[in-house]
Design a protein around this nucleic acid. Sequence first.
DNA 1: CACCTTGGTTTCATTATATGAAACTAGGTT
DNA 2: AACCTAGTTTCATATAATGAAACCAAGGTG
Lengths: 264, 264
Amino acid sequence: MTSDGTVGKALEVLDQVAAYGRPVRFSELLAASPFPKPTLYRFLQTLTNQRMLAYDPDRQTYSPGVRLVRLAHAAWEQSTLAPIARPHIDALSAAVGETVHLAQLDHAQVLYIDKRNANKPVQMFSQAGKVGPAYCTGVGKVMLAFCDPAVIAAVIEQQSFHRFTAATLTTPAALRTELSAIRANGYGFDREEHEPGIICIAMPILSDGGRVLGALSVTSTTSRTNLAGLESYVPILQDTASKIARDAQSWSFPDHDAKEPTGR
Amino acid sequence: MTSDGTVGKALEVLDQVAAYGRPVRFSELLAASPFPKPTLYRFLQTLTNQRMLAYDPDRQTYSPGVRLVRLAHAAWEQSTLAPIARPHIDALSAAVGETVHLAQLDHAQVLYIDKRNANKPVQMFSQAGKVGPAYCTGVGKVMLAFCDPAVIAAVIEQQSFHRFTAATLTTPAALRTELSAIRANGYGFDREEHEPGIICIAMPILSDGGRVLGALSVTSTTSRTNLAGLESYVPILQDTASKIARDAQSWSFPDHDAKEPTGR
DNA sequence: CACCTTGGTTTCATTATATGAAACTAGGTT
DNA sequence: AACCTAGTTTCATATAATGAAACCAAGGTG
């Protein structure tokens, strides 16, 4: 399961390159790679040919390639809540005037899908596409809380439980207690667990069947407000979440436009 | 060259799925695929396993997967002009109050990397990651104009020269004439060639060595202004482009933070 | 109800492809 | 000149991809 065939391995390499937040040399990759030298070399060549990686001949470094940007555009539009949620997020953002996040669960991580920065013009991708830990973010905990017990167990298994702040939950037991509280409440908080001074309230987006579709959150700072202050957003958050869930359900892709694939 | 090995073929399938703007069934893909049934089937399985594709068991459809969004984030931050250009684009957008695009050339197509919508809050990905034709967009023609003659020939070869409007340049000859004019001027226009009523002025972003790094454009409508009106933006566009080029040059990724790959 | 058709999945012998030890090359260093 | 180090190429071998054919499961349809 860990690696299906040649393409699985190639994608592993792609991930590895992407994980360094900077252009990276062959030798660096080799040192950290399970693959022998020529194998890794050929993978890099293939991926570069395919524009999945970009190669800088001067510095002899690899970085993720532009073809990914093109593909991700399609993924974002078709396989995420973002396009459906957009108008609702806009409304929410305008109403609360704070930073709003939309997230989904990917693997065992939180994937941020969209964002509204009340003040500044929004910075694309700069947040969308970013990943975060599930055990110490508002959206992460809220989504996890409403997952299948089996899924919860599997995800908890994969958390690092790294201590970011004094408030970080650093044990599976503590997290499980928190998850029960969230299930009882219907929503959750981030109590400076990831970054000091940063707090948020998070609301799950649940389908009729109770399946977790995603989550949204309103973030602020301890200098501007407190948990009780954030709690006043509960009604509008619930309203927004249920509207998104409704739209997601009805829009089961009813043919859309039935258009042919875009020619080359 | 057209397909290197197994991963090349798998990525071809991935592209095919992305090309439909909607979830797509196995049989549809099969009909349009060069691969025999079981081969295609296995590719789809592998890609789904790898979260490069998402499979909806109810509707039995495939669509691009969320892993792409994560990877694209890295690509966008490392392999495009966007992060460098961001502050300059912000300033430009604020100054002109019109829609601003940042684009790069990918393969033979224009890839939009960033965008500012003067009025509305920016819609992520909704434009970034989008592709457009090179022969009938302002940014496309401007970038092409300053490419190597060999590259120009190759790119022209691949254009469809589909007529979108009455003003669309529909022959290689017409396009080549236009490119010479752009080289002479230093910038170019879109004279409703792609969409009626939509005009723009585009400026190339050139390195010291004269290499094309990308292009930016200011878009408006014929109801609000005309080509002469757009031409008044030339100074600020030139200024912005040269600033971006300068920053791109100096920031040759000087170690950044030399951080280790982010643990799973 | 039996029969077909269409869309999706599995088998398995064959073949092509990926693999990686080792050899090689090109720049730097001592 | 001898000697590293980082990157690239060779080639016999093992492994993994391939695709014809068979199979299965739903919907039709006579």
